[in-house]
Design a protein around this nucleic acid. Structure first.
Lengths: 246, 246
DNA sequence: CATGAATTGTGTATAAAGTACACATCGATA
DNA sequence: TATCGATGTGTACTTTATACACAATTCATG
C-alpha cells in the first residue's frame, strides 16, 4: 500500500550533458533486426531461414538478420535486410517485438527487434537453388539458432491473430486468386479446417472481392473464378469495434 | 519479378570474430525504456507523466523512462523503472513497440522500447503532492516532449484494443468493484457509452465474476454489489478463436 | 416516518451473425 | 458419353448482439 508520498520517488534531474555522457560513453548496446519472412506455397505456410555460420550453432537454421547502423532508422534497417535478402521492396513489414535477454547472442550484448514480413513466394520460386537460404514449412521449424525459435513462435502467433483481424493474407497470394486458394491460405496459417460454403459466404458478405471475370487455368477439374482484393474499399471503411470478447 | 537466382542474394559469411568486432566497437546504440503508466480515478483514464528537465523541452511533459544498462535484461529494465517511479512491483506490464528514428533524442542516438503498464491508482492517491509527477487525463495529453506523443498514442490505441480481448481492466480497479465501476472503466478507456443492461448481461454470461456478498459503502443511493474477477477460471479456458473479422 | 431522488437490478422481443449441412453444375479426362 | 473431382449455391438452426422499460432498494430530506 505504498503511496508516492511515502516512497519518495526520485525525480529526473539529469542535465543534458550528463545524459549525453551516458548516451555517448556508457550505455551503448548493439542493436539488430531479425526478420521472420513468411510465404505460401503448395498450400503450406513457409518461412525463410538461413544456415547459421557460427560454429556454436553449426548446421542450425536461423532468421535473417543484421546489425542496425548507428545512424540508421530502425524500420529502415528492416526494409534494408528484406531488400538485401529477397530483392523485394514494397512488401508488408511489421515490427513485432524486441528481444533483450543479456545472454541471447554469443558475440556479446545484442538486443534484437523482430519484424514479420509477408511476401509472395512466387517471386522466389528458385530459392531451392540457394544452399544457404531455404523456405521451411512452418510446422517443421524447430531448434533454431540463438533465441530465434522464440522469436519465430512469437511472430507466428502474431500472424495468426492479425490475419483474422486484417486482410494481410493477400500479400501471400498472387494478385488474382481463387476462393479455394484463399481458404487454403487461411487453413494453413490457422492450422484448421473450415466449411467451404460458410467461408465463401463470409468473404462475399464483406463485399471486398472483385470478380476479375477470369478463371483458373491448368487445373484438372472445373476451374474456379479468380478474384482481386479491393484494398481501396477496405481502407475507406475501417471500423471502430467496441465489443468485449475474452 | 526478381527471383532469388537473379538477384544473387548475398549470404551471411561473417565470422564470429568479425561479428564480435562489430558488436563491441562499431554499432552500439543507447537503448532506453519509456513507460506509459495508466491509472483510473474519478471515472477518468489517467496517465502518469513527469516534467522534462531538458532545456529544449522546458515545461513540457514526458513519459517516465531511463537508459537500459549494458548488462540489464530489457524487460527487467522496464520493471525497474516502474519500481523506482511508483514503488510497485507486481503490476501489469507489456512491451508495446520500439521507436528508433535517428533524431528522436537531442542527446544523441537513443532507441527506446515502449512499455504499457496498468496500475491501481488508489495506491498513489497522494501523487498530487509531487511537483514533478502528475496523473493526466488521457484526453488532455498533448504536446509531449521528445516523440513521446507518438509513443503515448500508440500505447493508448493498443490499450483500447487489448482491453476488448483480454481482462486487463481489472488491474486498474480495486480488487472488489461494482458493475458500475467496471462499466465506467470500459466507457472511459473506449471513449464510448454502453447500455447498462447489455453490459451486465455480457459480463454475467462470461461467468468470470465472483459475487463477494458485499456491497458498496458511502454512496448516496442504493449500493451495488461488489465482485471479484475470477483470474484462475479465465486462465483455464483461454480459447482459440478462428473467426474472420475485418 | 413518509416522500422524493438516485441508482441498482432484471427480462423480452428483434436483428444480426455464425454454424451445420446436401445437391446440382461444370470442365477435364478416359 | 460416362466418370471424376472440383466449383457454386441455399436453408434451417443456433448463438450472439441490440434496443428498450419498470420495479426495488437505499439515502437524504422535511
Amino acid at each position: 500500500m505504498a503511496t508516492i508520498a511515502e516512497t519518495k520517488v526520485p525525480v529526473n534531474v539529469k542535465s543534458l550533458k550528463a545524459i549525453q555522457s551516458e548516451v555517448k560513453n556508457i550505455n551503448r548496446i548493439a542493436l539488430s533486426v531479425d526478420c521472420v519472412i513468411f510465404g505460401f506455397d503448395e498450400n503450406k505456410l513457409k518461412v525463410l531461414l538461413i544456415r547459421s555460420d557460427l560454429k556454436k550453432f553449426m548446421g542450425r537454421w536461423s532468421l535473417l538478420g543484421d546489425l542496425i547502423d548507428v545512424a540508421e532508422d530502425v524500420d529502415e534497417a528492416a526494409y534494408r535486410i528484406l531488400r538485401e535478402r529477397t530483392g523485394l521492396k514494397d512488401v508488408y513489414l511489421e515490427q513485432v517485438h524486441t528481444f533483450g535477454k543479456p545472454q541471447r547472442h554469443p558475440a556479446g550484448r545484442v538486443v534484437t527487434i523482430a519484424y514479420c514480413s509477408l511476401i509472395n513466394i512466387q517471386h522466389h520460386k528458385l530459392s531451392k537453388m540457394e544452399n544457404e537460404l531455404h523456405w521451411h514449412d512452418v510446422n517443421n521449424v524447430k531448434d533454431l539458432a540463438f533465441d530465434h525459435q522464440q522469436i519465430f513462435d512469437t511472430c507466428y502467433l502474431r500472424l495468426q491473430k492479425r490475419i483474422q483481424e486484417h486482410p494481410l493474407g493477400f500479400n501471400l497470394l498472387p494478385k488474382k486468386f481463387s476462393l479455394r486458394e484463399l481458404q487454403n491460405l487461411y487453413e494453413a496459417i490457422l492450422d484448421t479446417k473450415m466449411d467451404r460454403r460458410n467461408f465463401r459466404k463470409k468473404f462475399f458478405s464483406m463485399d471486398l472481392l472483385i470478380d476479375t471475370d477470369e478463371i483458373e487455368r491448368d487445373v484438372p477439374h472445373r476451374p474456379g473464378k479468380l478474384y482481386k482484393f479491393n484494398f481501396d474499399k477496405y481502407e475507406k471503411r475501417k471500423k471502430k469495434w467496441t465489443g468485449i470478447d475474452f
